[in-house]
Design a protein around this nucleic acid. Structure first.
Lengths: 349, 349
DNA sequence: CGCGAGCCTGTAAACGGTTACAGATGCCGC
DNA sequence: GCGGCATCTGTAACCGTTTACAGGCTCGCG
């Protein structure tokens, strides 16, 4: 059917070994022979069968990505960051998504076996035991936004705590004392860390966190919309709201607009992520910028490192710094403050 | 290293053929033998090497997706739609992105060779000759949002023309006579078709399209922002604006807000795509809904059909219908009209 | 007891590369 | 003329599956 290395060898009057050497640039081949082979190969439109190559070298030149979901800009940005680095090496990208189902995560992991040289996993739900159990032994893995106590895995996390701390500290500095929080899903690691950072900022300023000012959201616009309405109903409503992501903050803006509540005069609003649209809502949204493609890019680079150095590879836990972006939605446009941030590097989680 | 089918066979006291039969459910195996084999296999944590399997069956159980870019919600939604169907079959997804570089598209196509059983390509730039030339012969392909005159490829396109026609017709019905158009990039097929549909609607209503009312955008929020400002500067500004996608419409809303122009009273605004955020901007955006995941899903299903039926497969050109979604940004909330639409099916492009 | 018919199972040849190893060739200096 | 070396090339084993084909076994029946 398709032309094989043997066809090329026959046509060029050489052995398969020589053709292979030409294609992999391994071992010496006389210049004239090399030319003849490449000429024949392109004439026959030969291209090596990657399955055969994988079988014999045990390398796939492919990285696998397992995501909890593919919904929303966040994931597409991660993939974009990953793809860019992967493509730079002429490697390939196998993506899969687990819908946050434990069984599917495990199925996804197993399915990757033998198809990839390394794996990037983002799955807030998975504990390390399950992970280890379903992982082909020795397959390099980098975990994204996962909570793992153990240091046996490479991890990269967004500095959720620092970012949330910074944005709440900013609101406090504007004079707000009652700050509503619209949280993300309880089970989500990012959401928990953002809540934690926000509370810490309050405490640090001598303001006691109050349960009535914390309403539960799920990262969707709708839940932000509802959340802020719930806060407005309080006897003593907050003067500012921090939503755990931009989508919810935008939902909140929309609800406030419907109610005729002026932002930022009557209510300051802030979000988290700095999605592209954030600067175009009205008023433009104060938020925390995270370079999501960078998150993906770092993950792949780390993975490549692990693949190259093999078992000797030293695991690291890394935090990706964030940056406070001040826009009109919470007034006080004095200056775009840079996040108090966290250093990047070997780092306890 | 890893356990192979031979290890399992030895341990279970059978031949490799029998183990293979158990794993593929091909050919008869005595129940007791089957049980013993599965037991041994799971004890040894055996899982078949997919490269070897691919080599011998010539099937990869993988579909390749080649996109022009990975930026924005559009692409992530396409991938999501594709992934869902792919995963339903326990197949795999190899994604790659060409950055709209011709050379990268071709490299991407060649790189897929031997790694996938079929290909979904979205690349407005590529002409069919180049495509055919770089395609492994006989590899099934489905083209998304591509303009190809020839009927040799399966294609699926959004009904851009119908959607744009519907939204402009709606504005006309509201009494608007001067309607500004913020177009998408010239080279983009979707953008051209949307512009065409909009003009046709104007002509159909006896309104002559006017070049001064058409400003060029590039699908970004920023260009929508600028576009509407340009329209406001006209001696006789329009009373309504149709932006060729939602991002630009949102940019326009933001500019109008800054200028104190009331929407929809002083200026009606409409977009295209119905991205999730569209209903949460203020005022909520009138737009054209396209089920992007559906676009991806259909593409895969068609691809599966092509893979199964082999060379006998009949090519089809399909249009994905759109739906007008009327929200506050252009007043007239009488009812959500359903698009005049196009039928789906065998269909000239 | 012999014998075909059904089941079930094993043997071995692909699939298309890579690569260790051996062999050929050319060139040089003596 | 010939050994020795460097450089290039070929042979064949191997990677881990699938699968066509050939048996072997069991069983019922004449």
């Amino acid at each position: 059917m398709a032309t094989t290395i043997r066809d090329v060898a026959r046509e060029a009057g050489v052995s398969v070994a020589t053709v292979s050497r030409v294609f992999n640039d391994s071992g010496p081949v006389r210049e004239e022979t090399r030319r003849r082979i490449t000429e024949v190969a392109s004439r026959l439109r030969y291209s090596p069968n990657s399955a055969a190559r994988t079988l014999s070298t045990r390398r796939t030149q492919t990285v696998g990505v397992l995501l909890p979901d593919l919904y929303g800009e966040f994931f597409s940005e991660v993939i974009r960051g990953i793809d860019q680095v992967v493509q730079q090496r002429s490697w390939h990208l196998l993506v899969s998504c687990s819908h946050n189902e434990r069984s599917e995560i495990e199925a996804g992991l197993r399915a990757m076996r033998g198809r990839v040289d390394g794996l990037i996993v983002m799955s807030p739900d998975l504990d390390e035991h399950r992970l280890a159990r379903n992982l082909p032994d020795g397959l390099p893995v980098v975990l994204l936004n996962c909570e793992v106590a153990d240091r046996v895995f490479d991890t990269i996390n967004i500095d959720n705590r620092g970012g949330a701390h910074a944005v709440v500290a900013h609101l406090l500095k504007q004079g707000h004392r009652r700050i509503g929080l619209i949280t993300g899903p309880e089970r989500n690691h990012d959401a928990r860390e953002r809540l934690r950072g926000a509370r810490e900022a309050l405490v640090a300023a001598g303001v006691a966190p109050s349960p009535e000012l914390e309403v539960a959201g799920d990262f969707s616009e709708l839940s932000g919309h509802r959340g802020v309405l719930a806060l407005l109903k309080l006897d003593d409503p907050p003067t500012a709201v921090f939503a755990a992501n931009d989508s919810m903050a935008i939902g909140a803006l929309s609800a406030l607009g419907e109610r005729g509540v002026h932002v930022p005069e009557q209510m300051a609003v802030a979000g988290f992520d700095d999605i592209p649209i954030a600067r175009y809502v009205s008023p433009p949204l104060t938020t925390v910028r995270v370079s999501i493609p960078e998150l993906g890019g770092r993950a792949v680079r780390r993975l490549f490192g692990a693949i190259e150095s093999g078992a000797a590879h030293a695991r690291r836990q890394e935090l990706l710094p964030t940056e406070l972006v001040v826009r009109r939605s919470c007034g006080g446009l004095s200056r775009a403050t840079v996040d108090r941030g966290s250093d990047v590097g070997t780092h306890a989680n």
